[in-house]
């Protein structure tokens, strides 16, 4: 037996943790580009803000895409509900709310994550401290994940936690691709050609997959190759195919545990099917942007159904 509120708290706790981690990855990618590219990388910062869904809020506060402003807006700005500090605080508040559902290791890891980051992000992060700060964000959230895997029963508590993670991750990966879809678009001149180095690197870096991609593709980077890797490769833990498969499995586990089949389960199966039915060619034929937008929308609808089916709020 689990309270609907608890299910919702777990779901959001892990969505927020995933979001913090994704934001750290995006910043890492952006920073890397800014350092390795000579001149004008402000476009890059803009697209990173867009990917993170923070561009409008940012522009309401700043009028230039200065690296320092962007970084601190995304990391520590308390007025920005999506900044790493804000989402870690939300994650921890949710953890407090569902304290009784968590093992003490998961709770303590979450609490410590918040304590460490609260100190690190109390003041604007300097260029020199950026690398360490981003590393701490990934490290601290990894400890929570590790505790979850190592100490939690594989029951509804686990499933709601993982649903939060994968729904957030699917959204993030789809956005990364969608914001960059124009560089992946095969115009006649570019078909089969290596795309702009920096551009594909930022994509792969923002999902921490630059190395694994090279291993798989022997150093050959093509638009289709990267898109295929991030959308269809089920062995890649941040790909859409992987996330959607996990979402389906956890909803399936809930169906089994509760003995009730809900709309969200049906939707997840359809979602899974939609991705599996495509090849990378057919995705490009249909239009990469259209395909990704429809996935983002499906994902949001699915989250809505999970919330209703399991009575998060009423």
């Amino acid at each position: 037996m689990m309270l609907g509120k608890t299910a919702g708290g777990l779901f959001w706790m892990f969505r927020y943790l995933e979001r913090a981690e994704n934001t750290a990855r995006l910043l890492e990618a952006g920073w890397h580009i800014a350092l390795t590219r000579s001149g004008g990388s402000s476009n890059e910062w803009q697209s990173i803000l867009t990917t993170a869904g923070m561009d409008k809020a940012y522009l309401a506060k700043h009028d230039s895409f200065d690296a320092n402003y962007v970084i601190n807006f995304m990391l520590c700005d308390k007025d920005n509900p999506s900044s790493v500090m804000s989402v870690i605080t939300s994650a921890r508040n949710n953890a407090r709310l569902v304290r009784t559902a968590l093992s003490s290791e998961v709770w303590e890891a979450t609490n410590e994550c918040w304590m460490v980051l609260k100190d690190l992000l109390a003041k604007p992060v300097t260029e020199r401290a950026l690398h360490d700060t981003l590393m701490q964000i990934r490290f601290r959230t990894s400890v929570v994940r590790g505790a979850l895997h190592g100490t939690m029963l594989r029951n509804d508590i686990f499933s709601f936690s993982r649903l939060g993670t994968f729904i957030e991750r699917a959204d993030n990966t789809a956005r990364i691709l969608d914001v960059k879809y124009y560089v992946l678009l095969p115009s006649t001149a570019y078909i089969g050609k290596a795309i702009d180095n920096a551009q594909w690197e930022v994509i792969l870096r923002s999902v921490s997959a630059e190395r694994s991609y090279r291993w798989i593709n022997g150093g050959e980077s093509t638009a289709m190759g990267i898109a295929e890797f991030l959308i269809l490769d089920a062995s890649m833990p941040r790909s859409l195919a992987f996330c959607v498969k996990q979402i389906g499995e956890h909803l399936g586990n809930l169906e089994k545990q509760y003995g009730t089949r809900h709309e969200s389960c049906i939707q997840a199966e359809a979602f899974c099917h939609k991705i599996n039915a495509h090849s990378i060619d057919s995705i490009f034929e249909e239009g990469l942007h259209e395909f990704l937008s429809s996935l983002v929308a499906d994902n949001a609808k699915l989250a809505q159904h999970v919330e209703e089916d399991y009575r998060f709020y009423g």
Partner: peptide, 15 residues
């Protein structure tokens, strides 16, 4: 999380 239903105080669970 609670409401009165059929003469009892009940909590809203996932089921």
């Amino acid at each position: 999380d609670l409401r009165v239903e059929d003469g009892y105080v009940s909590m809203r669970t996932t089921q």
